[in-house]
C-alpha cells in the first residue's frame, strides 16, 4: 500500500507542479507552433503538441489520482525527453539562445521535481516507520466468531428485505423452487 499525506509539504509541492503541468501542457498544445518558432524548431511543432498532451496527463494524475510519486517520476522522465529534444534542436539553430533559455527552464523544473519526489519518498519512509496498530483482537463479539455465527438468524427482517424464495441458493429452497416449477408445468399442461 502506498502511503501519502494529501496535506504534506511534499504533496502541496506536487499539486503545484500538477497545476504547472496542466498550464504548460495547454500552452504546448494550443500554441505549439508559436513556441516551436520562438525556439527555432518549427519542424518539431507536432512533437511539442504531443509533449503538451503528456504534460496534461501528468498534471491530471498529480491533481486527481492520489499518490503523486509515480506522476512526479513520469514528469522527471518527461523532463529528460524535453532536454534531449532541446539539446538536439540547438545545433545549427539561429535561435539557439531561445532554445537554451527553454533548456534552462526545463532544468529548473527538473530540480523542483527531484526535490519533490525526494520529499515524498521521505514522507512515505516516515509513515512506514510508524508502528502498525494491531486490531486483530477487535471482533466486537463477546464470544469466538464461530459461536456468534447465526446468533441473530431470528432477527425481525421484513418481507420487503427478503429475496423471493425461488432465488435463494439454499438446497432446501432449491427443492421448493423445483416443486414450484413442477407445479407450474403441471398447471400449464
Amino acid at each position: 500500500m502506498a502511503y501519502y499525506n494529501r496535506s504534506s509539504t511534499g504533496d502541496n509541492l506536487a499539486r503545484g507542479l500538477g497545476w504547472f503541468s496542466v498550464g504548460l501542457g495547454v500552452a504546448e498544445l494550443m500554441a505549439g507552433r508559436t513556441i516551436a518558432r520562438w525556439m527555432g524548431m518549427e519542424d518539431k511543432t507536432n512533437l511539442i503538441r504531443a509533449y503538451g498532451v503528456r504534460e496534461i496527463t501528468a498534471g491530471v494524475g498529480l491533481l486527481a489520482l492520489g499518490d503523486p510519486k509515480p506522476w512526479i517520476w513520469s514528469r522527471i522522465a518527461g523532463d529528460a525527453v524535453d532536454m534531449a529534444t532541446l539539446a538536439a534542436g540547438m545545433e545549427n539553430n539561429p535561435r539557439a539562445g531561445n532554445a537554451g533559455i527553454a533548456f534552462g527552464a526545463v532544468m529548473a523544473a527538473t530540480a523542483l521535481d527531484i526535490v519533490c519526489v525526494q520529499k515524498l519518498h521521505q514522507e512515505e519512509a516516515y509513515y512506514r516507520s510508524l508502528p502498525v496498530p494491531d486490531y486483530s483482537d477487535r471482533s466486537g463479539f463477546p464470544r469466538p466468531v464461530s459461536a456468534m455465527r447465526g446468533a441473530a438468524s431470528d432477527a425481525p427482517i421484513g418481507e420487503d428485505m427478503r429475496t423471493p424464495k425461488i432465488l435463494r441458493f439454499q438446497p432446501a429452497q432449491s427443492q421448493t423452487a423445483q416443486n414450484q416449477i413442477a407445479q407450474n408445468q403441471t398447471a400449464t399442461s
Partner: peptide
C-alpha cells in the same frame, strides 16, 4: 489494519 480488524470479525 482494516483487513486485520475484518479478520477479527470473522
Amino acid at each position: 489494519e482494516r483487513l486485520a480488524m475484518a479478520k477479527a470479525g470473522g
